[in-house]
Computed example of a mutant assay.
Amino acid sequence: MTLPACPTHRMPRPSLLLWIGLLLLTMPQLLPAQGADYQLGPGDKLRITVFAEPYLSGEYIVSANGSVSMPLIEPVEVGGRTVQEAEDLVEQGLRAGFIGDPDVAIEVLDYRPFFIIGEVKNPGSYPYVADMSVLHAVAIAGGFTARAAKQKIEIQRDGDVLRSVANTTPVLPDDIITVKQRFF
């Protein structure tokens, strides 16, 4: 014998928290990949994976002229290109007579360094870290000295000088950060 359905005993609705959790799980697919705009350059260390071809997969360093040399193909010019563009170029090179339908993935293992000079405790060259800000760079360099003009920080980037940047300004590989000295 079955009991009649009671209107007050319905199946419980999924909680709002469950829906938010499901949304958060799908968010990475909706957002662009971090660093998708990053342009490769000399000194970047890459892991290039050619699926089903382990002898071609490995770690490669972008040379001073912006290219990567791999077995079987001519050097690939990746300098100034995004990771996705570099993957496409490597696939094109491999497709030209060696592998019918290559599948290539590239990951940046080590970025080019950034440089920080001026009124910081340990000026010098430091490894770049993704999503770094000026304040993070100063912290990596040991913090400000007592004579630092904390509001007078410049970044030299691609031949341009960005003056009086905020602490939240993003830092990129090859940037030269200068913390100016205060005079009073």
Rank of each mutant, 00 (worst) to 15 (best):
M1Y: 10
L3Q: 14
P7M: 08
H9R: 12
R10I: 03
P12Q: 07
R13M: 07
S15P: 00
W19L: 13
I20R: 04
T26C: 07
M27C: 13
Y38A: 03
P42W: 01
D44S: 02
K45M: 09
I48N: 04
T49L: 04
E53H: 10
Y55N: 15
E59N: 13
I61R: 09
I61Y: 01
A64V: 15
N65T: 15
S69N: 14
M70K: 02
L72G: 05
L72H: 08
P75C: 12
T82H: 05
V83Q: 00
D88R: 11
L89Q: 14
L94M: 08
R95S: 11
A96Q: 15
G97R: 01
D101K: 09
V104N: 08
A105S: 15
E107N: 12
P113K: 01
I116P: 11
I117L: 15
E119M: 05
E119Y: 03
E119W: 02
V120K: 03
V120G: 14
G124H: 05
Y126T: 05
P127R: 02
Y128Q: 05
D131N: 15
L135D: 15
H136P: 00
H136C: 06
A137E: 07
V138N: 09
V138S: 03
A139M: 03
F144Y: 14
K152W: 00
E154W: 04
I155K: 02
G159E: 13
G159N: 09
V161I: 12
L162W: 07
L162R: 08
A166Y: 10
T169Q: 10
T169N: 04
P170A: 02
V171N: 02
I176D: 13
V179W: 06
Q181V: 07
Q181M: 10
